[in-house]
Amino acid sequence: MSRLKRIQSIDGLKKTLQTILKNQCSLSESDVNLLNDAVAKLNKLRTKKGLTDKHYQMEIADIVELITEFLI
């Protein structure tokens, strides 16, 4: 995947998570923490350069785990 597509994907997911945080007043503190952690990891991932597809997938897997915990 090209770097531009990765950045676009990261930005789209980050925007979605921030919208959820902003519009859902009924979130518990742990839910807010999970989503904030996911956004922070996305911000960090966005600045990393030279990632192989395998490393990128590992980073995304961590973020997906956080989002899954939020959904469950």
Rank of each mutant, 00 (worst) to 15 (best):
G12K: 08
Q8W: 04
L4Q: 14
G12E: 07
L17M: 05
S26C: 12
T52H: 07
A38L: 12
N43T: 04
F70D: 00
R46Y: 12
K5P: 14
G12T: 07
E65R: 15
V32G: 03
I20E: 10
A61F: 12
Y56I: 01
K5I: 14
S26T: 15
V32A: 12
R6C: 11
L42V: 01
L35K: 05
T19F: 01
Q8D: 07
M58V: 06
T16V: 02
K48Y: 15
K41H: 04
D37S: 12
E59V: 11
Q8I: 05
L71N: 13
L71C: 08
S2K: 06
S9L: 15
T68Q: 09
L34I: 03
N36K: 05
E65V: 12
C25D: 15
K41C: 05
C25F: 15
I7L: 09
K22R: 14
K44N: 08
L71H: 13
M58F: 02
E69C: 02
K41M: 10
E59T: 09
K5N: 13
L42S: 00
A61Y: 10
L42G: 00
L42W: 02
L13Q: 11
A61P: 01
D31R: 02
S9N: 14
T47R: 12
I67P: 02
S30C: 13
R6V: 06
L4I: 11
V64I: 13
Y56S: 00
L4Y: 09
L4H: 11
Q8G: 01
Q18H: 03
I72N: 14
R46H: 12
K22S: 09
S9P: 07
V64S: 11
D62H: 09
D37Y: 08
L45K: 01
I67C: 05
T68Y: 09
T68P: 12
R3D: 14
N23M: 10
Q18M: 05
I67A: 03
D31I: 07
I7D: 06
R6G: 12
M58L: 10
L27I: 05
S30V: 14
L66K: 02
E29D: 13
Y56G: 00
G50M: 08
D53F: 05
H55G: 02
M1V: 09
N43L: 04
Q8L: 08
K41D: 06
I67F: 00
K15R: 02
K22V: 01
G12S: 11
K14E: 13
S26F: 15
A61K: 13
I72P: 14
K48P: 10
L35M: 10
I7E: 12
L66G: 11
S9V: 15
K22N: 10
Y56L: 05
N33A: 08
H55T: 13
Q18Y: 03
S26I: 09
I72F: 15
N23W: 01
L21W: 02
T47G: 07
I60M: 14
A40I: 09
K14G: 06
A40K: 14
T52Q: 07
L45M: 04
T16F: 03
K22P: 04
S9C: 15
V64G: 03
D31H: 05
K44E: 10
E65S: 13
